[in-house]
Every structure is written in structure tokens, then in C-alpha cells.
Simulated assay, not measured.
Amino acid sequence: MPFRNIAVGRPEEATHPDALKAALAEFISTLIFVFAGEGSGMAFNKLTDNGSTTPAGLVAAALAHAFGLFVAVSVGANISGGHVNPAVTFGAFVGGNITLLRGILYWIAQLLGSTVACLLLKFATNGLTTSAFSLSSGVGVWNAFVLEIVMTFGLVYTVYATAIDPKRGSVGIIAPIAIGFIVGANILAGGAFDGASMNPAVSFGPALVSWTWENHWVYWAGPLIGGGIAGLVYEFFFISHTTHEQLPSTDY
């Protein structure tokens, strides 16, 4: 059972140099990702005079997020594992692949990275608004909640299969590409409905800087539940605990 591998961690882990380096890597990776993803949305709004979302705009957002996440995961993989997402960190925690204390450090770093990215965008664009995630017309809160659960399940399941599973073999080489692709694909699937966050940090930064909190809980609860379910399902059904040793956090 994955529950037996869950660990709080030792207090000194919170100040250990390796943990702090990993947190810094998460901060930088999340900053890179949010700056590219949120920036692409702001650029589209400027080019269209804040017009409604078009198919071309949705494809552009999907590509920007896919490329940005591919880079963000790649540059952080050897240091922190390149989570770049509190839901991924939570999924790794419930599967016993990261301690609670290190996970909290990652969360803080990810939220700070997203916030700093949005502040930099606001400054660099001379005060343009960072758009908070919101529901499209006709989409209910519970519709978006389920959508976020399903999309984040697919994301974290992909992370487990390509980056965490000790049997991943050569598939691990393409992990950043696969993770970027699933996010891009999910944005094409759900972007027109609720923005397709799948990442509480990505939602938090724009909401904080623009101070827009309507239905914000959806973008936390949905991804965390989806990520947690994916972690439990993959650990329980596909990773053999008779031969599996817990992965060091630096391996993912």
C-alpha cells in the first residue's frame, strides 16, 4: 500500500541545503512556466483588444504552455524533479515519493514563483492585467470542478508513468515532452470551459496580482483531488512494492 511510504520528514530537512536548492529550482521553474504561459495570454489579449477567445488563441495558449512546461520540467528535473505544480507535488506525496516537509517547501516556492512571474509581467507590460482563471459562460462551478479533476488526473498519471515509476527505463528521457504535451492537449480540451489550469500555482499568481478570487477554490480543490487520485492509483496498481525502493526526491 502507498500509505505506508508516506513520511512527514525530519525537521532539519526544511533547512537542509539540498532541500533549499530544490525549492529554489522549483521557484525558478515555476517562474519560467508562468511567465511564458500567462504572458502568451496577455499578448493575445493585447493583439485582439481583449477580444473573446478564438480557436487560434486557444491553440496558441496550448502551445505556449506545452513548450514552457517542457522547458520548466527539463531545467528542474535533476535538482528538484521539476514538479512545477502543487498538484504534482501532492500526487508524489500521497504515493510516498516525497516527504511532507519537502512538499511544503515546494509549494511555497511554486506559489512564490508564480506570483513573481505575474508581477514581472505586470511591470514589463506597463500595468497590463494578469488574467485570473474564470469559468466561461454556461459552465457551472461543479462542471469546472470535475473537469479540473479529470485533466489533472491525466497530467499526474503521465508524470508517474514517465518520471516516477522505477520501471520507466528509457521512457524517462521523454518525460518533459510527455508532460508538456498532456498539458497542451488538456488546454485544447478544457481551455474554452474553465481555462484548464491543472495547477494551483498557475491560478494563484494571476489571482493574487489582479486580486480576483471568484471560484478560485475550484482551481485548488480540483487539481489536488485529481493529482492525489492519480498518485494513489499508479502506486497501488502499477508499482510493485515488493521490489520498489522509495525514489530519492532528486530523482524526481
Results as ranks from 00 to 15, higher is better:
residue 112 L to Q: 00
residue 105 L to V: 00
residue 131 S to T: 15
residue 190 G to W: 08
residue 131 S to W: 12
residue 137 S to I: 07
residue 133 F to N: 11
residue 48 T to Y: 07
residue 26 E to L: 01
residue 113 G to I: 00
residue 249 S to N: 12
residue 28 I to P: 00
residue 125 T to G: 03
residue 61 A to V: 09
residue 122 K to Q: 14
residue 131 S to A: 15
residue 110 Q to I: 04
residue 2 P to Y: 02
residue 189 A to E: 03
residue 201 A to D: 06
residue 26 E to M: 00
residue 118 C to D: 13
residue 212 T to K: 15
residue 22 A to F: 02
residue 200 P to R: 08
residue 246 Q to V: 15
residue 229 I to D: 00
residue 162 T to L: 13
residue 22 A to T: 01
residue 235 E to Y: 06
residue 30 T to C: 06
residue 118 C to R: 09
residue 22 A to I: 05
residue 128 L to M: 11
residue 96 G to D: 09
residue 207 A to M: 12
residue 86 P to R: 03
residue 251 D to Q: 14
residue 202 V to C: 14
residue 64 A to F: 04
residue 226 G to Y: 02
residue 240 S to K: 10
residue 226 G to Q: 06
residue 246 Q to H: 13
residue 25 A to V: 01
residue 227 G to W: 04
residue 57 G to Q: 09
residue 178 A to S: 14
residue 205 G to C: 08
residue 125 T to Y: 05
residue 153 F to E: 09
residue 193 F to Q: 14
residue 236 F to K: 09
residue 93 F to G: 02
residue 159 V to C: 08
residue 250 T to C: 03
residue 60 A to V: 08
residue 42 M to N: 10
residue 190 G to V: 09
residue 39 G to H: 07
residue 30 T to V: 13
residue 100 L to A: 13
residue 12 E to W: 09
residue 240 S to E: 12
residue 142 W to F: 14
residue 207 A to I: 12
residue 25 A to Q: 01
residue 146 V to P: 06
residue 44 F to M: 13
residue 243 T to F: 01
residue 84 V to R: 05
residue 120 L to I: 14
residue 123 F to G: 12
residue 11 P to V: 02
residue 129 T to L: 13
residue 110 Q to E: 13
residue 110 Q to P: 08
residue 75 V to K: 00
residue 123 F to P: 00
residue 40 S to V: 06
residue 189 A to D: 05
residue 47 L to P: 00
residue 195 G to M: 12
residue 216 H to L: 15
residue 252 Y to F: 15
residue 25 A to G: 06
residue 198 M to L: 15
residue 171 V to D: 13
residue 235 E to M: 11
residue 174 I to V: 14
residue 243 T to K: 11
residue 192 A to Y: 11
residue 212 T to G: 13
residue 75 V to G: 03
residue 68 G to S: 12
residue 22 A to S: 11
residue 196 A to F: 11
residue 105 L to P: 00
residue 30 T to G: 03
residue 144 A to I: 12
residue 172 G to T: 10
residue 19 A to G: 05
residue 202 V to G: 12
residue 183 V to M: 11
residue 86 P to I: 07
